[in-house]
């Protein structure tokens, strides 16, 4: 080895430089091509989407502020009525938040069970791990709207179809995140518990949950934030809550924009509020853990 480098000297260095430069230019070529393909995809995709759209992009840009402008103008004009609207629509808002909260709770409970059953090393039935993973993949893949619309047909409108639909999706989405957390849990407490004859559920409750609870909680809070949005949007498709009221107010058109504006404001404020709350608590959960670890 040492021989080769010594006898190599100057010509080898230039060789190396040449190969290096060749490699660099090859890499640049590849990334250039990738970039070009990406730009082409974006441009052609955009043009295709525009061609299949009701109105054009440029034409729409001019009117972009028309609707918000009208809404704001009307809301300002009838500013005195806004507090009354807030009171009127508060129950609907509460329903939207309740849908999100219940579905997060139910989904998270299901996710806990699913994730424990599908983590190697913790699973109750190690052979069924792939089965539970596939179950989570499928529940995660089903968009909420599908289940909500079908349940609306069977159960009639209202908050329950939306709640079940969101909980279903949450179970899969959180289950995957939870099982990633579980994989990092130490198995030593489990061995200790097993040696004193603890059952599976006792081992999980006493050995795993205390280790992973902060991370679980943090993910669940994040999910709650997402679920508020989902619950509002499902309401728009007919599943109750603020989304449903919003749809009605919008379809009445001009003259009722003050109601729409009130609901826009309420939804916006709620989302921001829970965003801030959840990020505050998540910060504390994760930071608290970090401090303990440093000590």
């Amino acid at each position: 080895m040492a021989d080769v480098t010594q006898s190599g000297g100057a010509p080898r260095l230039s060789d190396m430089q040449a190969t290096y430069m060749a490699q660099v230019s090859k890499r640049r070529l590849y990334s250039g091509i990738t970039l070009l393909v990406f730009i082409l995809l974006m441009v052609s995709g955009f043009r295709l989407a525009e061609a299949r759209n009701g109105g054009s992009f440029i034409g729409g840009l001019d009117n972009f502020f028309d609707y918000p402008g009208e809404v704001v103008a009307e809301a300002v004009e009838k500013a005195g009525e806004l507090p009354a609207h807030f009171v009127t629509f508060f129950p609907a808002l509460l329903e939207t938040v309740n849908i999100a909260a219940v579905s997060t709770l139910v989904g998270a409970l299901a996710a806990v069970v699913l994730s424990l059953l599908s983590t190697r090393g913790l699973a109750r039935f190690p052979r069924l791990v792939p089965l539970f993973r596939r179950i989570m993949d499928i529940t995660r893949a089903v968009p909420e709207i599908v289940i909500a619309l079908i349940l609306i047909f069977v159960l009639g409108g209202g908050p329950v179809p939306a709640m079940i639909a969101i909980a279903f999706h949450t179970a899969g989405a959180l289950g995957k995140l939870f099982s990633e957390v579980n994989e990092n849990a130490s198995l030593k407490p489990l061995e200790g518990l097993e040696s004193v004859g603890a059952t599976w559920s006792q081992r999980m409750m006493l050995g795993v949950v205390p280790q992973v609870a902060p991370n679980w909680l943090s993910y669940a809070l994040m999910r709650f934030e997402i679920n508020i949005r989902a619950s509002a949007i499902l309401g728009f498709v007919g599943a109750g809550g603020l989304g449903y009221e919003l749809k009605n107010a919008i379809s009445w058109g001009q003259g009722q924009y003050d109601e729409a504006a009130a609901m826009f404001l309420m939804l916006f404020a709620t989302i921001i509020l829970f965003d801030q709350l959840s990020s505050h608590f998540r910060d504390r959960l994760v930071h608290g853990r970090k401090l303990e670890m440093h000590r």
């Binding site: 989407a49 299949r52 109105g55 009117n63 826009f264 989302i271």
Partner: peptide, 23 residues
């Protein structure tokens, strides 16, 4: 942008750009 949420953006944009995938 995040707080207004996709639902409200969808409603506002539908008014400006019409129905379709671009919206």
């Amino acid at each position: 942008l995040r707080g207004v949420d996709a639902l409200i953006w969808t409603i506002v944009l539908t008014r400006a750009f019409g129905l379709g995938p671009l919206t």
